[in-house]
């Protein structure tokens, strides 16, 4: 069984039932809340807009975490992968790819709208999009690893938030830090994202494997 088959299935399941629009709607909702909360000061909104978009992206990545691994464990799909000799790290890697494809491109489109809400200059918007392109694989990897860790727990959604948020802080720091135009922050963002993406499949595989015993 090849990874593309698993990616296709996971992507189809994520998009079925309008799953594509949930993170986008949630992302825009969070971005819209801030102007209400801090008031209609255009200069202030432009200044915090980039950071708000990053925080909203992080929350949007967390939204589908409960649906990433637990349903497949319950339905016996993971068992069938293992019986067929598909390595769990490959399954986790495919899930990361599918999760990323499911939420990152729509989120980057939605960031255009959010940038309009905050009246961000084009240069900042460009750095946001570049940062999201670099950082979202790390968010997706973190999401799948978290999903694997909390699969089978009761109230896993709340636990997932507690597990994932602190680990996503470096992405947030360097993602928002890169908005000032610093190349160093962008490189550190790429480094963090790479570490998460490379490590998460093994962590997720170990978590799923220990859940089976």
């Amino acid at each position: 069984m090849r990874a593309t088959v698993i990616i296709t299935r996971d992507l189809r399941r994520a998009w079925a039932g309008g799953g594509l629009w949930w993170p986008v709607a949630f992302f825009l909702l969070v971005a819209t809340l801030f102007p209400f909360a801090v008031g209609p000061d255009a200069a202030l909104l432009t200044r915090i807009g980039g950071g708000v978009i990053w925080a909203a992206a992080l929350l949007a990545a967390l939204l589908p975490v409960e649906r990433l691994v637990a349903p497949d464990v319950e339905a016996g799909v993971i068992d069938q992968y293992v019986v067929r000799g598909v390595p769990l790290a490959l399954v986790a890697g495919a899930k990361i790819a599918a999760h990323w494809l499911g939420f990152a491109p729509p989120l980057m489109l939605a960031a255009l709208i959010a940038a309009g809400l905050f009246d961000l200059p084009a240069a900042v918007l460009l750095r946001i999009e570049l940062g999201l392109a670099i950082g979202t694989p790390g968010l997706a990897a973190l999401g799948v690893a978290t999903a694997a860790l909390v699969a089978g727990l009761r109230g896993s959604g709340a636990v997932a938030g507690l597990v994932m948020m602190p680990l996503a802080v470096p992405l947030l720091i360097f993602g928002a830090g890169a908005l000032d135009g610093g190349a160093a922050a962008m490189k550190l963002l790429a480094a963090v994202s790479l570490v998460l993406t490379a490590g998460a499949p093994w962590i997720a595989a170990a978590a799923i494997r220990s859940g089976m015993d």
Binding site: R9, R13, A16, G17, E74, A75, G76, V77, D79, Q80, V83, R84, G85
Partner: peptide, 15 residues
Amino acid sequence: GAVALLGEAHALDPE
């Protein structure tokens, strides 16, 4: 030899 397992769950996508 390869294994085929019929478990408690059917592992077929319900939709």
